[in-house]
């Protein structure tokens, strides 16, 4: 039976090499975003924790902050640890990439980047994965459908479908006062050029 690895023990392992990089809140291990990759590398390489397998990597939008959730698994010791990291910067959320620690983080981080717009620094190939380049906004954010620059409710059509479904050109976006938490459209909206493939 897979056991839950004790968060306090994990915190001690991390803090032994990098003091202050980890803390425990209500039984959940929180890691400092800046040193996240190194802390997880420590947890992976330590013999006590032995968290060699990245089972799951995802993010949750808590409206005021993003929470990155990692499920790390030790295969030999058969325990699992849930690790979280919080980023409060909604405009350009970024944290270190885990690709140097787990090769398996590659696609999962791309997915989170695609759907949440969280940048992973050091990721070798951070591009949109499910949605096409130039898709406006990040769908899994809670404020996705209230985005500024969204001309009408619902999603626009695919770029090749018809003229009226074409995407808002940056200049033609109705200028409205933006909420500080809203992503700035200028940097994000890219007109689909010619008809590149939609991936």
């Amino acid at each position: 039976m897979t056991t839950q690895y004790d968060a306090t023990a994990a915190m001690e392992i991390v803090n032994a090499s990098a003091p202050g990089a980890a803390c425990v809140d209500e039984g959940v291990l929180y890691l400092e975003p800046d040193t996240l990759a190194d802390s997880i590398r420590t947890l992976r390489d330590s013999d006590q924790s032995d968290l060699v397998f990245l089972s799951n990597l995802t993010a949750v939008d808590h409206e005021l902050h993003f929470e990155l959730v990692y499920h790390l698994q030790s295969l030999d010791l058969n325990h699992i640890l849930q690790v979280k990291a919080r980023i409060s910067d909604r405009e350009d959320p970024a944290l270190p990439s885990l690709t140097g620690v787990y090769h398996g983080a590659h696609l999962q981080e791309r997915e989170v980047f695609d759907l949440f717009g969280i940048r992973f620094e050091g990721h070798p190939d951070l591009r949109r994965m499910f949605l096409w380049d130039g898709f406006p906004g990040y769908p899994l954010r809670k404020d996705f459908l209230q985005m500024p620059g969204q001309v009408r409710a619902g999603l626009p059509g695919f770029p090749h479908e018809s003229e009226e479904n074409a995407w808002p050109v940056p200049g033609s976006v109705p200028q409205r006062p933006l909420h500080p938490n809203d992503p700035q459209p200028e940097g994000e909206i890219v007109v689909a050029e010619e008809s590149e493939d939609p991936s």
Binding site: S55, N56, T58, V60, D61, V69, G104, L107, Q108, E111
Partner: peptide, 29 residues
């Protein structure tokens, strides 16, 4: 390994619904 990660905020619908898809992650290599 097929996983589902659910977050509830006490409402009738999941606040976050995430699937850990083995097909996608098996393509990593």
């Amino acid at each position: 390994e097929l996983g589902f990660y659910l977050v509830s905020d006490g409402g009738p619908a999941p606040y976050r619904f995430h699937c850990r898809p083995p097909s996608l992650i098996n393509l990593s290599a």
